[in-house]
Amino acid sequence: MQNKTFRNLFMLPYALWIIIFVIAPILLVVYFSFFDINGNFSLTNYKNFFTATYLQMTLNSFWYAFLITVISLLIAYPTAYILTRTKHKQLWLLLIIVPSWINLLLKAYAFIGIFGTHGAANRFLEWAGIGSRQLLFTDFSFVFVAVYIFIPFMILPIFNALDKLNPSLLYAASDLGASKWTTFRRVIFPLTLDGVKSGCQVVFIPALSLFMLTRLIAGNRVITLGTAIEQQFLVTQNWGMGATIAVFLIIIMVGFMALTSIRRRGV
């Protein structure tokens, strides 16, 4: 009996934390989404969301988040694979992760410098004979910088999954006649799928609501749901619409989580 009381007592701080910082904000967001700009209770925000502008924005967000996730995955998987086979793999991993400790804003400004009209990238292009061009404020620079920022988060879970892989399984596959590619396709990849899934989660979900980069790097040419929320709250002061977009964002994220965490099998 006493044990149970104690346990509940210890649970209290965590329960409070979750109520105050997770459940209450979500409820507030949902609550605000039902008020129009004049503070009247209505469903106009939801009606507005299903207009071409916002649906286009949702599609945009999806598309960029998808691009960023896929490109990160394509770069991160081989990198993680090579890392597990190097001698000082923990050191290499650390070196790859270190940039993620630097403030996001700082990195964004650094890229503005690099991609600017007289930046390092353009000077290189000129030197190479291709000639300078507009790099900043393009889709390319947006995706490039986003991928750069998210890659460590994709590498980590994949690296861990590859590192945990029992090497005798690879010998067994080879022993049974599998070529290197077949071994990858039939054994390595399926067994590291969980790592890939969590990597995609930690990249796709934040990428969906990216807003600072869209302004700094993409020059507001790319309008995602994240940008829209920011605009609604800070510029238009339409909290109701901002909250409505947030509600949809939350629904999409939950949906994505559910999709990527379908049952896992034993080790």
Partner: peptide
């Protein structure tokens, strides 16, 4: 194999 190395 000693640890069987069955594909999980």
């Amino acid at each position: 194999f000693q640890d069987y190395a069955l594909f999980p």
